[in-house]
Design a protein around this nucleic acid. Structure first.
Lengths: 344, 344
DNA sequence: TGTTGTTGTTCATACGTATGCACAACTCTT
DNA sequence: AAGAGTTGTGCATACGTATGAACAACAACA
């Protein structure tokens, strides 16, 4: 009806109260008589009043936006994680502002722009911000949560997957299944996750390796995707001594490998080779792959990340927290669950 | 250093100019002497000045946020599309504010909340907003772009895939390959896309059907995902007269079907059955499926959507636009490209 | 020299909300 | 009945930016 948007002053006029009374009516903690509040709500309804977030932000010095910094969304695992984060953020009455920092050299300058929005917080799931940028956010009173980052910032809260544990778990599963000739595959470009996964894998194996009963090789593939897995199969399956257990740091690579393997070796031979992936992406459970893998509950990480942020908002001065989300081995057909032995 | 964030007034004081001069220095279209601007920039740099978006929004009555309304991000196609949208929005110097309206009955109330942010625009890719909500945005001066929605709003700009064309294309491909016993599968719950795809499919076939040489059946599956495709295979492949051509309205369903089919019929028999999917998701090109499908370029749609929004911002009063993005048939192994015949 | 135009800057104000303070009208307590 | 506490409301102001209007300095032109 009216050409311009209704303001709290318009509502006040219609309800016959002051503007401050309108403002307080929308604050549950304010002392407002039931009758007045009722009248204000009716007037607001009638005018289609919507609060002006910009004005609110200016006063409160804090918007209800949360910056979600991500990269590489073409990876479905990341993409799924972003989805979960969005949901979690929404459920807290906050709004997700997404920022994709793919193919940027330094994400610092990009991140700097976020300070302008007086965000309630920033959750960084990709890219490696410099020490400085972290401090810049803190100085501006914007809490930062680092997810699965290598940063050892002493001011930001940190939520990590138990990547090292995932590697150990894979190694243990192979040993329990009696596999002795092991390979671990990760993308050439080192990421925090994959490096830690390999580390855990090799650490667990260390005692066995020295006994010479088991050996393990690290193989690098081009990238963290299906195609790289497809390619690397040639190298792995045509070597003189084929492995009988392969741990892939990402499910995608494993799936590419599996498809490629069908070309190269017989189903029978393939069934003797144990394969474990990591992440438990949707694809892994498809019948075409049915991949044994290490599940990282993206819901769990998302929940923990947002919860951490909320905690920080409530107690801004408490010491930075740091937690590792546990992982879980999901047996499927590429490595069968061994019969219970006394190896534990 | 300073405990509070620097404002334009602080910069002005340091540079020895007025606040308005600082403001104008950051506006390329303002007349400011080179020397002054230089001095202002230096002062800003020194103080780590960041413009306050909330204050700016209040004055300009428009933020640089764009609302991206989506749902069902567990579907990788949607998720990929969101990714593309985010990139496009960022490239225009705008910020994407994502809103997931999954599992909400009416998205209207959710959308209403967006009005508070004085968005530069809203791109709606999921859910079906009521006529009213569209009008509400328009009234508040917020342009709306509907992507692949059934809405016939006469105030919003519309970007559609050529869904009907996709259906026709699939039908034509089957006919050209000499397939006569056709099935088209879509999710039980009617979505705009799938309904139009089926419509196009059947429309193209109409003349052949009347000649009795070809027949076509519509089959509904539970949902638009892998598992539903897996399930529906039983129904389709165990019927008395098996089809020799199946068009799935979504690649996911097709992939589920293909995996399931391996259980039910021999590879030889399967090779006689043509399968066409729709969307060309990443999965479709995996060797495990190698699915012939109809490609919807998500980049193309994303680009067109954002471009449409920008056009609207430049000329707010011009008539609403409407465009259909063309699709493309990608031959892979589930339906081979027929030898050139004179059917055209 | 007076008129007109151009350039660069400042002043003052508006945007819409939240909130400390003051205060009036009650309710309780003694 | 008088002082003390409680409840509900209004006044006034601050937040940080953009921008129209005014103006000063200077150049161009007659």
């Amino acid at each position: 009806m009216n050409k311009h948007t209704a303001t709290s002053a318009d509502v006040a006029a219609l309800a016959g109260v002051s503007q401050s009374t309108v403002s307080r009516s929308f604050d549950p903690n304010s002392r407002i008589s039931v009758a007045t509040r009722q009248r204000v709500f009716e007037a607001a309804e009638q005018l289609g009043y919507q609060i002006n977030k910009a004005a609110q932000t200016m006063i409160k010095k804090r918007s209800d936006l949360v910056g979600l910094v991500t990269a590489g969304l073409e990876d479905p695992f990341r993409s799924e994680f972003l989805h979960k984060l969005i949901i979690e953020v929404q459920n807290c009455g906050l709004r997700p502002m997404v920022m994709d920092v793919s193919d940027r050299e330094t994400i610092d300058e990009e991140l700097h722009g976020l300070i302008q929005y007086q965000l309630s917080g920033v959750i960084i799931t990709s890219g490696t911000p410099s020490e400085n940028i972290g401090k810049a956010f803190i100085r501006h009173g914007i809490p930062v949560v680092l997810v699965n980052r290598t940063e050892h910032s002493d001011e930001a809260d940190i939520v990590n997957l138990d990547n090292e544990g995932a590697g150990e778990m894979a190694a243990k599963a192979f040993i329990e299944s009696g596999k002795t000739n092991l390979v671990v595959v990760r993308s050439k470009k080192p990421s925090f996750s994959s490096v830690m996964r390999v580390k855990g894998f090799l650490n667990y194996l260390a005692p066995f390796l020295s006994g010479d009963k088991v050996n393990a090789t690290e193989v690098l593939c081009d990238a963290g995707n299906y195609d790289s897995g497809y390619q690397i199969a040639d190298k792995i399956l045509t070597s003189q001594h084929k492995p009988d257990g392969i741990f892939f740091c990402m499910d995608h690579i494993a799936c590419g490998f599996l498809d490629s393997a069908k070309r190269l070796v017989s189903p029978n031979e393939m069934s003797a080779i144990g394969v474990i992936g990591c992440d438990d992406i949707a694809l892994a459970s498809f019948r075409a792959y049915d991949l044994t893998t290490i599940r990282q509950s993206s819901s769990e990480i998302a929940r923990a990340s947002v919860e951490t942020l909320l905690n920080r908002l409530q107690s801004p001065t408490s010491a930075p927290s740091k937690q590792a989300i546990p992982v879980e081995l999901v047996y499927r057909s590429t490595l069968a669950k061994p019969q219970r032995t006394n190896i534990e």
